[in-house]
Design a protein around this nucleic acid. Sequence first.
DNA 1: GCCAACGTTGGC
DNA 2: GCCAACGTTGGC
Length: 134
Amino acid sequence: MNYWLVKSEPFKYSWDDFVKEGKSVWDGVRNYQARNNMMAMKKGDWVFFYHSNEGMEVVGLAEVQKEHFPDPTTEDPRWVVVELIPVKKFAKTVTLKTMKADDRLSGLALIKQSRLSVTPVAKAEFDIILSLAE
DNA sequence: GCCAACGTTGGC
DNA sequence: GCCAACGTTGGC
């Protein structure tokens, strides 16, 4: 079981859009590192849903429903997508500010590589963020 | 709106 | 294969 974090700009695709649709094919990723992370996702892995730009906070938890398959939005065979389903919206969102202020989260890939749209989350980090969300 | 960080492209 | 130029992302 692995843990991840995906970013989305809420005015493009928000948590509410995600819940409304009931699932999401995570397409449009055009970065090798992010792609590699998606290829490492397994069905049942948990994924934090983070709002970038506006909000800058983790808003909910998703689950990997389908492991990687070719990105239907491009002919280019290099790119893949995964399918995610919403699990739950957090009672309390966890802001970037909060995570940055927490020493235990100083190694978080989200913080170290702020431009990467799909990042891994260590189990310890996952547990900490989850505890902050309740 | 600015700018730092970083990835990609293309000329040599 | 190097590196300058350029584009994009995302925090502030």
